[in-house]
Amino acid sequence: MIEKVLKAYGIECIDCEIKPFGNGLINQTWKVFAPDGQYILQKVNTNVFQSPVDIADNTLIIKKYLDRVAPQYLFVAPIITITGAGIIEEGDGFYRLFPFVANSFTVDTVTEAEQAYHAAKQFGKFTRILEAFNPQNLKVTIPDFHNLSLRAVQYSMALKNANKERLKTANWAIEKVKEYLWIAEKFKQLQVENSLKTRVIHHDTKINNVLLHIESGRGLSVIDLDTVMPGYFISDVGDMMRTYLSAANEEEISFEKIKVRSDVFLAIYKGYMEEMRRSLNLREQELFIYSGQFMIFMQTLRFLTDYLNNDVYYPVSHAEHNLLRAKNQITLLMEYTKSELEFKQIIENYETQLESLNGGLSMNV
């Protein structure tokens, strides 16, 4: 099957070596070692992305725009087939092929603040460089993906319909969620106020969706563009907060290990704002810390909703898997919220230093 797919790109794989690549949970990925170079081949998960052609169309329209306005920007777009398609349907699925970027690597966990800085800078740069591009020209690949209002409604329905046993087991999580419902109410109010500008947003800012330079460690580009669509900056910043700040990921069951790292918070702020400072309005800048609460709470609701719905969405390995994930995220939200004053001070100190530095440079000039 794979050989037939590669042939559509003009690659004869008599001497190819094909190996599974990465540890992504959504799409199936291989690294292809061909006589003429190295490639990344993906099979799109059509259970998640029900219209794979929309993904290809989005990527193609962005590539055409960037080729015109920012040809120097490293945009890792799928290779076009012999017939001019950005994605092909073969057998039981849809496939696309990417060039493998030489001298690049990815990491699965933020182990040092500098990694978070480079990732935040790359995600910020991606949105900034597309600032003049009309996001409404993009197709929505996952409807309501980061619609917290909808997630809150889905959670309420799950509460009403859940069986008594699961409701009882989840009681602690349910009671904790009540304390943070203000986050969903605030999001609803922000939409009423029209405080958030719609932009081209990545929507999946895990650290392994950034290519880093193998020698310097600096950021090269963002990858995994399936969820690129119209959205709000709080999705990208919030997902970085959710997945970078704690060394323990969402599968950790020893909740005492879930702590937020202030140096990583500063790195996210510094990297993202270096690119997006002039793009974000003052109200949006005030929401930088809220973005983490927004995403952590939304993921809490998604895990807890799935548990109450008898695990119909996320793969689980045991009966309380989703409940433990929800408790994990609640713990992260609690730690994050306890650090809110510290985060504000970190931002204030950084901005003061930056203003002092810029003032000094102006005088020197």
Results as ranks from 00 to 15, higher is better:
M1G: 00
M1E: 02
I2V: 07
I2G: 12
I11Y: 15
E12V: 07
E12L: 09
G22N: 04
N23H: 05
Q28I: 08
K31T: 03
Q38S: 12
I40N: 09
L41D: 05
D54F: 02
I55V: 11
T59Y: 15
K64M: 10
Y65D: 06
D67Q: 15
D67A: 13
V69I: 15
A70E: 15
Q72Y: 14
Y73C: 01
F75Q: 03
I82D: 10
I82F: 04
I82T: 10
E90C: 11
E90M: 14
G91F: 12
D92W: 13
Y95K: 00
L97P: 00
P99G: 02
A102R: 14
N103C: 13
S104G: 08
F105L: 08
T111P: 01
E112S: 09
A116M: 15
H118Y: 11
A119Q: 04
G124K: 04
G124P: 04
F126Y: 04
I129Y: 02
I129F: 05
L130K: 06
N134R: 05
N137L: 14
L138M: 11
K139Q: 10
K139P: 01
V140E: 07
Y155T: 09
S156L: 13
N161R: 12
E165T: 13
K168P: 00
W172T: 07
E175C: 02
K176L: 06
V177S: 09
K178R: 11
E179A: 09
L181N: 11
W182S: 02
A184K: 13
F187C: 02
K188N: 13
K188C: 09
V192S: 12
E193C: 06
L196A: 05
T198H: 07
R199W: 01
V200W: 06
I201P: 03
I201V: 11
D204M: 11
K206M: 09
L211H: 03
H213W: 08
L220Y: 02
S221M: 08
V228A: 01
M229D: 03
F233C: 05
I234F: 14
D236K: 15
G238Y: 05
M240T: 02
T243D: 01
Y244E: 05
S246H: 11
A247F: 07
E250L: 13
E251D: 15
E252V: 08
I253T: 10
I253N: 07
K259P: 00
D263S: 09
L266D: 03
I268C: 15
E275N: 11
R278Q: 06
S279A: 05
S279D: 08
R283Q: 12
S291P: 02
Q293C: 07
F294M: 08
M295K: 10
Q299Y: 04
T300F: 02
R302H: 08
D306K: 14
N309D: 15
V312P: 02
Y313H: 07
Y313V: 01
S317P: 00
L324S: 06
K327S: 14
M334G: 06
K338W: 00
S339W: 05
L341K: 06
E348T: 07
Y350V: 00
Y350K: 00
Q353C: 07
L354Q: 05
E355P: 00
S356G: 01
G359E: 05
G360H: 04
S362H: 04
S362Y: 03
